[in-house]
Simulated scan of single mutants.
Amino acid sequence: MNLGKTTIIGESLLENSRKNIEILPLIDNFFDDLEVDKKTVDEWSLVLFSIGIAHSVEERESGFVIVLESTEDNNRAAKEIIEYVEGIKAKSIYSKSQKKRDRKIFSIVTFLWFLFFIFFLLTETTENLFHWKYIGINSAFKVKQGEFWRIVTALFLHGDIAHFLGNMLVGFLSFSALSMYLGVGSSTLLFILSGSLGNYLNICFRNFHLSLGASTSIFGVIGVMIGLQFYREYRNRKWLMMTAMLIILALLGTAGENTDFGAHFFGMLSGVIFGIIYHAFDIKYGLRKPLFQTIFFISSFLIFSISWILSFFIIL
């Protein structure tokens, strides 16, 4: 059997065995769209060698051939090579699909960060009219008086443009990395939940403390990534390096005079807790499915919207 100038399985497959005749059409049809060269034949030779099939690779006028020493190995050799090539094709298809998915996620995350920027501009330009920071800042006294929504609204407020841009840089990197693994819906909900819990824990033992900014949630996302490192399926060198880099970047941004170290610490701690909880439910229910991603994203939007509605309701 020839493809161009390369014979895929050598002469021993051309024996007049009934089984050999049945397997040849399968190989022919399977390799119709495959370009075969010396490197490919050598790879197949390694496959046969690994399973103990005696053979040799020879170069002839018609091209390279794999010659089996025993005709009894014909079907087994053909089967192993077909499975090997099928595996490569499947991996290639998965890789293309994964790249397409990653590009889609990156586009969605970029759009979300654009909306975050628009919201920042809105709060800054209309502060005198709506008093966003007054009604939305995380106030220990106010939260303990029942205005619990402040632990959410404070995540979307910033002191100035420098504060906002610093958070957005590290936030974009960490949120994108987490979204590639868990999905945008899961990451958005974990962003809000870990940040909110971090804000709450940060004021539990304080009566007169004020804080705002997304850094609590950003440290929460990094905490989720750390929490997931306890499990083998999430553990890989790239993600470990990404997590380490994000921690360094985040810590570089904590040198300011008004830095709330408590919020950062409790945000990361909350993230670790939610990361462990998420994994437990993901194993049982498959939380990365599209249905759950949609539910999580809608839930995140509702938490954001209801929290701000309650904030405005108080001043009416």
Score class of each variant (00 low, 15 high):
residue 25 P to G: 02
residue 301 F to E: 00
residue 92 S to D: 11
residue 307 S to Q: 06
residue 97 S to A: 15
residue 147 E to F: 13
residue 249 L to D: 03
residue 211 S to G: 12
residue 294 T to A: 11
residue 56 S to F: 00
residue 176 S to Y: 15
residue 118 I to A: 13
residue 248 I to W: 04
residue 8 I to M: 07
residue 192 I to A: 07
residue 114 F to N: 02
residue 306 I to C: 09
residue 315 I to W: 13
residue 35 E to L: 04
residue 250 A to N: 11
residue 161 I to S: 10
residue 247 I to Y: 05
residue 183 G to H: 10
residue 211 S to L: 04
residue 81 I to S: 12
residue 134 Y to P: 00
residue 241 M to N: 06
residue 305 S to T: 12
residue 75 N to V: 15
residue 48 L to S: 11
residue 159 G to V: 06
residue 119 F to A: 10
residue 244 A to G: 06
residue 139 S to I: 00
residue 309 I to W: 10
residue 105 I to A: 05
residue 2 N to M: 01
residue 144 K to R: 12
residue 250 A to G: 15
residue 101 R to Y: 06
residue 22 E to Q: 15
residue 16 N to E: 04
residue 275 G to L: 11
residue 113 W to A: 03
residue 168 M to E: 03
residue 244 A to W: 02
residue 98 Q to S: 10
residue 220 G to Y: 10
residue 143 V to H: 04
residue 54 A to E: 07
residue 282 D to S: 00
residue 103 R to E: 04
residue 39 K to W: 01
residue 244 A to Y: 09
residue 90 A to Q: 13
residue 97 S to E: 14
residue 127 E to A: 10
residue 99 K to S: 12
residue 232 R to G: 00
residue 270 S to I: 04
residue 150 R to C: 12
residue 213 G to S: 09
residue 83 E to G: 03
residue 229 Q to F: 05
residue 165 L to Y: 00
residue 257 E to V: 00
residue 84 Y to G: 02
residue 200 Y to P: 03
residue 2 N to T: 01
residue 74 N to R: 13
residue 123 T to A: 14
residue 209 H to V: 01
residue 12 S to C: 02
residue 309 I to K: 09
residue 263 A to V: 03
residue 31 F to R: 02
residue 172 F to V: 07
residue 163 H to Y: 12
residue 53 I to C: 05
residue 180 M to W: 15
residue 90 A to M: 07
residue 209 H to A: 10
residue 240 L to G: 09
residue 193 L to Q: 02
residue 271 G to W: 10
residue 215 S to Y: 14
residue 204 C to Q: 12
residue 41 V to A: 07
residue 197 L to S: 09
residue 245 M to G: 13
residue 17 S to W: 06
residue 156 F to S: 10
residue 95 S to H: 08
